[in-house]
């Protein structure tokens, strides 16, 4: 018994050693640094900030900040089309949009927040991002006119293509040499 205990003790010590920093470089990341980099949003909504936005408010944000590149009706111009395409994925001419293809509502929030407007990323406040994302979902028929987007409601939005992704089974071709 004592032998086993000794062994366990040694194992625990070894784990501890493995977990100690070996080189001791760098310095503890500060709370500020981590907050600045904490904009990545998990599909379960982890990381979403406070704030909320309505479809109506989102229409205004869209006209003011997005329409010049995506078109008044989100039909696409300098930036891609942001509406339509549902039901086309299995056809010869699939139209992949936020509405028809993107599986998670959180991804739209995350991407608009980090990358849009294209020429001034980071410009929008959290409430404006909630609003404009609500508007994009609304024109795609995903949420109703009165639905409000916030940290609680957004991850619950079920995108039309939520179940449209499958694991990659490759190698699916190419394993036999043709002679």
């Amino acid at each position: 018994m004592w032998k086993l205990r000794l062994l366990l003790l040694a194992a625990a010590a070894a784990t501890l050693v493995a977990q100690m920093p070996k080189y001791g470089v760098g310095r503890p990341a500060t709370a500020d640094q981590i907050r600045d980099l904490g904009t990545a949003i998990a599909p379960d909504g982890g990381g979403l900030p406070e704030g909320s936005g309505t479809v109506a408010a989102g229409r205004e944000v869209f006209i003011a900040r997005c329409a010049k590149c995506h078109g008044e009706k989100a039909e696409g111009a300098v930036g891609p089309i942001l509406v339509g395409g549902q039901g086309t994925l299995a056809t010869a001419k699939p139209l992949k949009t936020v509405g028809s293809f993107w599986p998670y509502a959180t991804t739209v929030w995350d991407y608009v927040n980090r990358a849009m407007p294209f020429d001034q990323p980071g410009l929008l406040k959290a409430a404006e991002v909630y609003a404009v994302v609500a508007y994009i979902f609304n024109i795609n028929g995903i949420i109703g006119d009165d639905q409000v987007m916030d940290a609680k409601s957004l991850p619950k939005v079920k995108m039309p293509n939520r179940d449209g992704f499958v694991a990659d089974p490759r190698p699916d071709v190419g394993n036999k040499v043709r002679r």
């Binding site: 995350d110 991407y111 990358a115």
Partner: peptide, 12 residues
């Protein structure tokens, strides 16, 4: 993290 984040460049 304990999950993939489903970023735009790995979904869309």
């Amino acid at each position: 993290t304990d999950q993939a984040y489903m970023a735009r460049d790995e979904t869309a």
